[in-house]
Design a binder for these strands. Structure first.
Lengths: 159, 159
DNA sequence: CTGACTGCAAACCCTTTGCAGACCG
DNA sequence: CGGTCTGCAAAGGGTTTGCAGTCAG
């Protein structure tokens, strides 16, 4: 339920990031460092654009596409994840019953599953500090069978 | 864990749709009917475009923007929901600890919360039929305090 | 020094919108 | 018939990419 991240913790994460960068053999640029510091210090799951805006003062020469490239790099390094299934297009759900989702992180496949047990989760009371609670569901992420079978499956490079 | 929807059930949903359309006082066009039939009969949470492709044979004159308009209409009627936070931009998450999300369905605000109890959910065994299970988290949807406070909050019209 | 990285601008999607004609009620 | 709805085409907004100059290692 934290609403901010302590500077100390941000710097710990930054160290972890530096190590990961070194291990991956990619360059540690000023931009990458500051962009990482910014995501790591934010608690609101920012978009590329809002990070860009926040960084403008510190890095006046920064360009938005560098923010994108860096975020996907961080993603490939396993340092950040994305919110929601994907980045592609909106997807629609016409299932009127309470249900949960299985999402393939590789191809975006989505499937429903039911579980009366999961329909009655106990949500921490503090969550209602954020606002009303209208619906709750479980999201399971994995790699679907089809993607697991694909030979070039491990090619994590994109962008 | 169903992998398809029976024609009978689709038609039941179609009836429900017709009623909702009548109640809302909007017109029941051929396109709307077929588009609804298509989402209601699909289990893979299609995008507007894949619905469009699937409908092309039945409705050669259909245009993609009608699919979009209809889907958002269905959304406003409460007949379909969307997968994931929203449609705008990708959002990034740099929280390395296991955590869960609170999402405001109105403005997209996202916040983390922790719960050791929710970190150990029991996922139905059948889910692994879909593929590997790499991560599991709970998503709570609601309306955040700020949005609740806004006067023009009930204006559901968009698009 | 040299290849990886950045900034810029243009290209790319996916999605929305303005408008004139079509059709439901 | 009238107003809503559709199809078309063009605009919009977020994201990606090609290129030449720049900088980390």
């Amino acid at each position: 339920m934290r609403t901010e991240i302590s500077p100390v913790e941000v710097e710990q994460r930054v160290e972890h990031f530096k190590e990961a960068v070194r291990r991956a053999g990619v360059k540690l640029t000023h931009q990458r460092l500051e962009i990482f510091r910014e995501v790591a210090g934010s608690v609101d799951h920012p978009s590329a654009d809002s990070l860009f805006e926040a960084l403008k003062t510190r890095l006046p020469m920064l360009s938005l596409d560098t923010v994108y490239r860096t975020l996907w790099l961080l993603h490939d390094l396993g340092l950040v994840s994305t919110l929601g299934p994907r980045r592609e297009s909106v997807r629609f759900d016409a299932n009127p019953l309470p249900h949960h989702h299985y999402i393939c992180v590789r191809c975006g496949l989505a499937r429903d599953f039911e579980s009366s047990e999961l329909n009655m989760l106990h949500i921490p009371a503090l969550v209602s500090d954020f606002g009303s609670i209208d619906a709750t569901h479980v999201e399971v992420h994995g790699v679907c069978k089809r993607c697991l079978a694909e030979p070039e499956a491990e090619t994590k490079t994109r962008h």
